[in-house]
Design a protein around this nucleic acid. Structure first.
Lengths: 105, 105
DNA sequence: GCCTTACTTTGTAACTTTGCAAAATTGAAA
DNA sequence: TTTCAATTTTGCAAAGTTACAAAGTAAGGC
């Protein structure tokens, strides 16, 4: 946890675009619910579907969004597919968000 | 900067919804560009319009998104309106994002 | 091979976002 | 008070998102 970073170094248009892509992947409450659940360990699609209470195809699409941006990874074992967090550091983003929301300046 | 936060405490559906709202406000590259610029100090709408290179009405709408979520504040002085960052802690989110993107796990 | 379970892909409808243009507003200056 | 400059609001079109349902795929059991 070497939290230097005097000021974020994002500068080129491409940097802003890729940062926006990450935030977009995080901009849906059901995807945040999925990420939160995966924080406790891997889950199969059926479990996540039961958790969020939407159609399995919808959950599968949400997982695909998270996979494409590199937030989760999938692993097929038999007939089931298990998803897990690929970015341990992701929990830091939630921490920053907590600070953000607590910050009443 | 009391960075406890063992694990993010967001839990209720409302928590996930409001977190998603914040990420949604951050999910546009032009809005990130605006936030980055405001990190160096207040700017009027004309300056920000020149910076992002879109129609002024579009920039005004982006600023309205950022204002509604509490990221920026506005202050009219004469005929101009100056925008500035309301959340100093916002730069932490960019730092987390840098860590996230550097994290090659 | 055929069936079942678990999942993904595709089609589609409802809705949201993003942009521009034109009209409306606000404050200062003439 | 008319005019001008800066900004916001409204209307609209194109593109993107989110959901479900139905069809498609993959692995395991009979």
């Amino acid at each position: 946890m070497k939290s230097t970073c005097p000021i974020a170094t994002a500068k080129t248009p491409a940097d802003f675009r890729s940062a926006a892509e990450v935030f977009k992947a995080l901009s849906n409450p059901n995807r945040l619910l999925i990420i939160d659940a995966l924080g406790q360990g891997e889950r199969c699609v059926a479990d996540l579907t039961a958790l969020v209470g939407l159609d399995m195809s919808t959950v599968s699409n949400h997982l695909s969004v998270l996979r494409k941006i590199g937030i989760v990874k999938d692993e097929r074992r038999g007939t089931r597919v298990f998803y897990s967090l690929r970015k341990a550091c992701l929990s830091n983003i939630f921490c920053c968000l907590d600070e953000f929301q607590a910050c009443g300046e």
